[in-house]
Design a binder for these strands. Structure first.
Lengths: 140, 140
DNA sequence: TGTACTGTAATATTAATTGTTACAGATAGG
DNA sequence: CCTATCTGTAACAATTAATATTACAGTACA
């Protein structure tokens, strides 16, 4: 799985703790240790789906436009990583009973796996993540 | 996810249809359209876990040593792809509340996700895959 | 009108996956 | 006991995917 999914979670969690002002991609990238352009790419997806709002120019940046408890990890997964579970297997041999049909069989199984994963991810909202982060932080 | 998992499934399904004789890595690789050395690598893992038996030399190869209904996809996943769901995110910024704790929080969530996925994969045995492949084949 | 942002494309770099070559060791059969 | 055919692995090459970087247009504010 590429890390756009975790980057999106990271960014939203960050924003959920900065509700009073906009955060720049530079600030978020410093927290996540990735290039600011990547943050902007991922956040532009989240923006298209209405989870955040952005503003260009001085004082601009990104800010949460929903309540953190309204956004769950499955929402984010579908935006950033839909189909990522599906392994990219090579086209197999059409002259072999196994090769000719395996791909379709596995495809449908992985579709099911992703939906099943969704049931799990739906249980976690960004608010939950914020709480877990705070919780871990107090232990240090 | 790398495709060792699907390769293992492909190979075992192939073997499940060739119970009367040993199959060479060449034969399996032809069905799966990958290099025979990769087949040998993956199958050596399955051998270590007792799912198959191998024999070197003339007339050698691989053969199933269990009943296809005794091996499920979760068994195979753990052997070939354990931890594959875990995204490899960069170490994040320790000076930031989010950065410092996110990694641990996400780690435990992905552990849970993998276990949840396991519940789904347990529902499919190699026998089920064989049946599905045969079923698809009859439609053509 | 200059400065500080986002948005996005194009390119470069790095890392992961896969393929290839090479060869030691096992085994059956002549 | 010698040769052909297989597995088992390691080392290396090639390919592909992920990520970083650079560049620049567009927007907003002061």
């Amino acid at each position: 799985m590429n890390s756009d999914f975790t980057l999106a979670i990271h960014s939203l969690t960050y924003l959920a703790l900065q509700l009073d002002h906009m955060s720049t991609s530079d600030a978020i990238s410093e927290s996540a240790c990735v290039h600011p352009v990547r943050i902007r790419k991922v956040l532009s997806l989240l923006k298209k789906h209405g989870f955040i709002v952005s503003k260009e120019g001085i004082g601009g940046g990104f800010i949460f436009s929903k309540d953190a408890s309204e956004v769950n990890l499955w929402d984010i997964y579908r935006i950033t990583s839909d189909g990522a579970l599906q392994p990219k297997c090579p086209d197999s041999n059409e002259d072999c009973v196994v090769g000719a049909n395996m791909q379709k069989v596995l495809f449908s199984i992985f579709i099911g796996a992703e939906q099943h994963l969704g049931q799990y991810l739906k249980n976690y909202t960004i608010k939950d993540i914020v709480d877990l982060v705070n919780q871990k932080n107090q232990l240090c």
